[in-house]
């Protein structure tokens, strides 16, 4: 997490808080995506619907890639057929058919890859909103340079102690996410419970602690 930048003919050592912030946002969104596909306790037909729109979106996005040779073109042509097959499957998915027609058309016409936006996913997920909601918003602003004014980051380099606290907080949030992921894995994939059941005392404490602190309703 530490990096050095050229400054006055020397190397200035500092905590790479810019990367820590960007990566922590990615870690939160990555967990929310895992939650959307796997951990969220919805019926199988809805899980299948979510998976279908995810895969169709991926293939649709690939259609926009530049073609550089005949192989590329052949692959894209083959994937057009796959898109059609997956779309046909989507049209017979009972959860999809239960949606209002306007929503059905939306999923057929767009490249929407998930059913809920990040804010709704944060609300619905099992993450502790007191820790994650505002942080995710701030980190999103940080990731988009045009919104950087929302944060007061000008003094960061002048205050190493604050940099340290910020970096520690980002790492703590990441530990909570990993803890939640490990515990949720044991629920949906029972085989992974064996790994947790055989942990040494210290590792077991860490998993339980960070999973609990990061969970909704923990404070």
């Amino acid at each position: 997490m530490k990096s050095s930048i050229p400054y006055n003919g020397q190397r200035l050592e500092l905590i790479d808080i810019a990367s820590a912030n960007i990566i922590t946002r990615e870690i939160i969104e990555n967990y929310l995506t895992l939650y959307h596909f796997h951990f969220d306790n919805v019926e199988e037909k809805q899980k299948a619907f979510r998976y279908l729109i995810y895969v169709i979106s991926a293939y649709k996005n690939r259609q926009a890639f530049s073609v550089h040779n005949l192989d590329n073109q052949q692959q894209l042509d083959e994937e057009k057929i796959v898109i059609q097959e997956l779309t046909d499957a989507l049209k017979t998915n009972t959860y999809f058919l239960s949606l209002p027609l306007k929503n059905q058309e939306h999923y057929l016409k767009t490249k929407e890859a998930k059913q809920l936006n990040w804010t709704d996913l944060l609300d619905k997920s099992d993450l502790q909103p007191d820790f994650f909601k505002d942080t995710w918003r701030l980190l999103s602003n940080y990731a988009h340079s045009e919104f950087l004014g929302v944060l007061q980051i000008r003094d960061y380099p002048k205050n190493p102690a604050q940099l340290n606290v910020n970096a520690f907080s980002m790492a703590e949030l990441s530990a909570m996410i990993i803890g939640r992921t490990i515990i949720n894995n044991t629920i949906i994939f029972p085989l992974t419970k064996d790994i947790v059941d055989t942990l040494d005392e210290d590792s077991d404490n860490l998993v339980k602690y960070f999973s609990k602190v990061g969970a909704k309703g923990s404070t």
Binding site: A171, I178, F189, L191, S203
Partner: peptide, 28 residues
């Protein structure tokens, strides 16, 4: 005291557990 080095070690420990979980699903 916000010990960054310590939380990094903790992250490494937790990450290794997650890797084992994913690995057992894949390898078996």
């Amino acid at each position: 005291k916000h010990p960054v080095d310590l939380i990094i070690l903790i992250l490494d420990n937790l990450n290794s557990i997650l890797v084992k979980q994913v690995d057992i699903l894949h390898t078996e």
